[in-house]
Design a protein around this nucleic acid. Structure first.
Lengths: 239, 239
DNA sequence: CGTAATATTGATCATGTTCAACGTCGGTGG
DNA sequence: CCACCGACGTTGAACATGATCAATATTACG
């Protein structure tokens, strides 16, 4: 399994030492796990003990209210690291589910701590990854609280475009977009019906094509304008 | 200035060693800063270099869209630590503003790193604080995305009650609630008009009184039920 | 005491939800 | 091979929640 996306992602934050990069590669080889679409990798209430580093496929963090309303909290893409340090807590406060078949590397707490202890550039890169995830979560709050349906969906598309580009999963102006409209509705806080109509509006304005699980952005400028998208919050420019 | 709330807050996560607690007390004394209501402590785009630990007053993280729509991302309460490690990034991705007059302690990056390097219980407590802030941010996503107005406001009240209780700022079932309805509207993603009506609904159902900048929760059970509030995400039970 | 900020009210409007039906596609078992 | 099935996507109509606009209290404070 390719470990490229992980190194690409971390390198976007910090230039990794050769030794550090090698240590990461090696740690990732140790134990890889596959999960099927809709499978939960972790559930709210579970004791967190492992660090997951995603190699392929899409997953998400989500929460469900008692009455079944679901909110996707963030998308987890190839190269992303999940829950470094969360083992300090007794229980997961949210769930992690696979949106497509996924492959990820699973590190024991000790192995992860050893990895970041060995090399400062690695440690800083992982910290940045964690801080960037927090930043994305904040951006989603303003997305859900203050943007309307069209802006929200446009914003999510821009974010995914930028994040996938970093790990080399964008081909020209297209990328694989494997999630259902229901997933996207749960990520944007909309009903599936309204999400569907919003997609139609985006298609009608000719800025995107979404077909066969493939998203093409014809006019990124227009799309990011309509979303008031500013990629700063992704922190992908190296300091 | 009292440093109590900080120790109380951190102690909620980890039992601090005597030495660790003393080191914190001492670090907090070094430089305290005051800011007036509405003053920004940090702005989006600023280079982050300091760690702030709040001693009194309320602040918030917020973001503003180009056209002026504002979203409060989280409340910052006495005892909270702000942006440990964020100095790894080149620029702030959001702003921090005072909602009331605040007093906080400002630590240089080096001083903060020294503090957490000296004692494992201190380090873990600060990590927990950071992880808990992430968790709160996630809960706000579901609040904004999937709860209706009444549920949102009830949820925010429950959260503030629990968080203030930990730092000893709840008196019986009342606490000082110093923010304007506009602030609360921006925190819940509502218009001020609708927020006002939602408050009236909560008052009419006799679960709360909000008067003279003071919130009393008459029926916490009812309030948390209507919000589907579950305090787990605050991670305040020590492991 | 005057003034600006904050809170409240009513009326109208808009965005997005809900419900129910139907269409489409891909896979699976007879 | 094809019929069936289930998941996903699309449509229309009625409805509801919350936004907007504008006016009017009320309060805090210099």
């Amino acid at each position: 399994m390719q470990t490229q996306p992980v190194v690409r992602r971390l390198t976007a934050f910090r230039r990794l030492s050769e030794k550090g990069a090698a240590a990461i590669e090696s740690a990732l080889q140790h134990k890889t796990v596959k999960a099927a679409t809709c499978e939960d990798l972790a559930r709210e209430g579970d004791r967190p003990d492992k660090v997951r580093i995603f190699l392929s496929g899409w997953a998400c963090r989500y929460k469900v209210l008692e009455d079944g309303r679901r909110q996707i909290l963030s998308f987890i893409l190839p190269g992303d690291t999940c829950d470094a340090h969360i083992y300090l807590f007794a229980a997961m406060d949210h769930s992690i589910g696979a949106l497509t078949p996924v492959v990820y590397s699973e590190l024991e707490r000790a192995a992860f701590e050893q990895l970041i202890a060995a090399d400062i550039s690695v440690a800083e890169a992982f910290y940045c990854e964690m801080l960037a995830a927090s930043s994305v979560q904040r951006e989603w709050a303003i997305n859900l609280g203050r943007r309307d349906a069209l802006e929200r969906v446009a914003h999510v598309f821009c974010e995914l475009f930028e994040r996938l580009r970093v790990v080399g999963l964008v081909d020209g102006n297209s990328f694989s977009f494997p999630v259902t409209q229901m997933d996207l509705a749960d990520a944007t806080g909309l009903s599936t019906v309204h999400l569907n109509r919003t997609l139609q509006e985006l298609r009608a304005s000719r800025v995107i094509t979404l077909r066969d699980r493939n998203l093409t952005i014809h006019d990124y400028r227009a799309l990011s304008n309509m979303a008031m998208f500013n990629s700063n919050y992704l922190h992908l420019e190296r300091k």
